[in-house]
């Protein structure tokens, strides 16, 4: 356990030193993007690791928050309403949480891959709505001139300031997820993942637990969505289309669905491949490369990079460490356990 603490301290130190040694491109396009995408992926991993539910609706929830912030801070062509930033943020995150709860209400009626399909369908429905609707979403163009805000004289459009904002938000979300796992709510959620019938026999309302988890995931995805909005300076239906929706899943699976940190590890891997694909392969063929890497991870290391690291560590460890839930834990409770 001591080596774990030391390792964590080292990672944290690296994250804090990083903006002082790296150039603007690395700080903003790699660091900022990783933390933004990673936070959205974290909401997916939170549901998967602790709730056993795989949701593809997380990018849509990020989009809800992103669109709301754009709508209330950067009106375009008569669409939008200018509000002070704190109010806009509160509304945006509130809406993302609320939408998360709504998706949860629908999604808890399904389990396993059905949840995946249903949330994908909802996410795509939101995409088509944003594409067709001009009154709220400004249709195909979306909101194009959304600058990161100035707060107390600090412009968050500046790469390093933006990085600190991302680090703060990401650490906050990560802290929230790890903290929740130890609360009665988090423990009940994990129990609902492992054996919903026993838990409901103990008097818990499994469905409400799951809906609440979707709400928390909505909040986290919303925070990631706002970071993404400020990084790109714009939001359009393209930001919530099928490809970005799948990107979040890919980041989460690449890192590993078993542990929250997998979200950020996967996002880093994804962003690096995305930015440097041009060096290995034609820039246009980035998707082939990342698709093959993703396929490789699914085929050969279902626990992602985290699982791989754990596996290698277990080879050298004196006694085998208990590993986290494997990818199939996400597919829902084992029916064999469910006959009690």
């Amino acid at each position: 356990m001591r080596s774990g603490t030391l390792f964590r301290a080292l990672v944290l130190l690296a994250l804090l030193v990083f903006p002082f040694v790296a150039n603007d491109f690395w700080v903003q396009q790699i660091g900022g993007r990783t933390l933004g995408l990673g936070t959205v992926a974290l909401s997916l991993v939170f549901l998967a690791a602790h709730g056993g539910m795989l949701s593809l609706g997380q990018m849509a929830l990020a989009g809800v928050a992103g669109y709301a912030v754009a709508y209330f801070t950067a009106p375009v062509a008569g669409v939008g309403l200018l509000l002070p930033l704190p109010a806009a943020l509160a509304i945006a995150l509130g809406l993302a949480t609320f939408t998360g709860l709504l998706i949860g209400l629908i999604a808890v009626r399904t389990s396993g891959i059905y949840t995946l399909m249903l949330t994908l369908a909802i996410a795509m429905g939101f995409y088509y709505l944003a594409l067709q609707n001009y009154a709220l979403f400004n249709g195909f163009t979306g909101f194009t001139q959304v600058d990161a805000p100035d707060i107390a004289g600090v412009s968050f459009a500046e790469p390093r300031a933006f990085y600190w904002l991302c680090i703060g938000a990401a650490l906050g979300c990560y802290g929230l997820v790890t903290y929740l796992a130890t609360t009665p709510f988090g423990l009940a959620m994990q129990a609902a993942r492992d054996n919903p019938r026993r838990l409901s026999a103990l008097g818990y309302h499994v469905a409400s637990l799951r809906v609440a988890a979707f709400g928390v995931a909505g909040l986290i995805a919303g925070i990631g969505g706002v970071l993404g909005l400020w990084l790109n300076g714009s939001i359009s239906p393209g930001s919530i289309a099928l490809v970005p929706t799948i990107d979040v899943l890919m980041a989460a699976v690449l890192g590993g669905l078993g542990h929250p940190v997998g979200a950020y590890v996967g996002a880093l891997l994804f962003v690096i491949v995305q930015n440097f694909a041009i060096d290995f392969i034609d820039r246009e063929r980035f998707n082939t490369l990342i698709g093959l890497i993703f396929l490789g991870v699914v085929l050969f290391s279902p626990d992602g990079v985290i699982g791989l690291v754990r596996h290698v560590r277990a080879l050298f460890a004196p006694r085998s460490e208990k590993s986290g839930p494997a990818i199939d834990a996400v597919a829902g409770p084992d029916p064999a356990n469910d006959k009690t």
Binding site: I246, L249, G291, L292, F294, V298
Partner: peptide, 18 residues
């Protein structure tokens, strides 16, 4: 392993589309 198959299918669809 239905979830793993689904994820693999997503990977295939990305590569095929590209």
């Amino acid at each position: 392993q239905d979830l793993r198959q689904t994820l693999a299918a997503i990977g295939v669809s990305i590569v095929l589309a590209d």
